[in-house]
């Protein structure tokens, strides 16, 4: 079975060492997904596998045979930005733009987790199954995505404005 990337089926590379990240960037020239550390410490390579956020640098492509992968390139249609992408622009949720695709994919996966009530480190009551995406919840849940330019406030605002407790 092939990997389906943004709706397009792709054969796994013959070399099992190839990570999902390098498959995207070097074999498919889909460079929207970024390599920041290549060891699971920065989150820049975050993509969605069947809707769940994962680190494509630690994922051997061969393991994702038969899975559906969504990358940043799969979020917008032509020039119409995804609402979260638009919010990142509006709230200046980035500076250099390098961690940005990972932040955006991560946030989309994060919202799905929150919507089904997954707990996080700052969850006060584990029995509570409804997650209210407060600024604190967003910060904790997004902590696997580093930003060195210091756009943290804008990132959190963009997510909150799109999905948070005050979102329209």
């Amino acid at each position: 079975m092939p990997i389906v990337i943004n709706g397009v089926a792709t054969e796994v590379p013959p070399d099992p060492r190839v990570s999902l990240l390098d498959l995207l960037r070097e074999r498919l020239t889909m460079t929207g997904t970024k390599k920041g550390c290549n060891q699971g410490a920065c989150g820049a390579c975050t993509v969605l596998a069947d809707g769940e956020r994962i680190l494509s640098c630690l994922a051997l492509a061969v393991q994702y045979d038969g899975r559906r992968i969504t990358t940043v390139e799969g979020l917008s249609e032509n020039d119409t930005l995804h609402p979260l992408q638009q919010a990142f622009v509006e709230h200046d949720g980035f500076q250099c733009g390098y961690c940005t695709p990972g932040q955006i994919c991560s946030a989309i996966g994060m919202v799905a987790e929150a919507n089904r009530g997954a707990p996080c480190h700052v969850t006060a009551d584990l029995a509570e199954e409804t997650v209210v995406l407060t600024r604190e919840q967003i910060r904790e849940r997004m902590s696997g995505n580093l930003c060195r330019c210091g756009a943290h406030n804008g990132i959190v605002e963009a997510i909150a404005a799109t999905y948070g407790d005050g979102a329209s």
Partner: peptide, 15 residues
């Protein structure tokens, strides 16, 4: 549950 969500990042915990 607390120990798990205190570890690593959400992406890593998903994998």
């Amino acid at each position: 549950a607390r120990a798990i969500v205190a570890g690593a990042s959400a992406q890593i915990r998903n994998m």
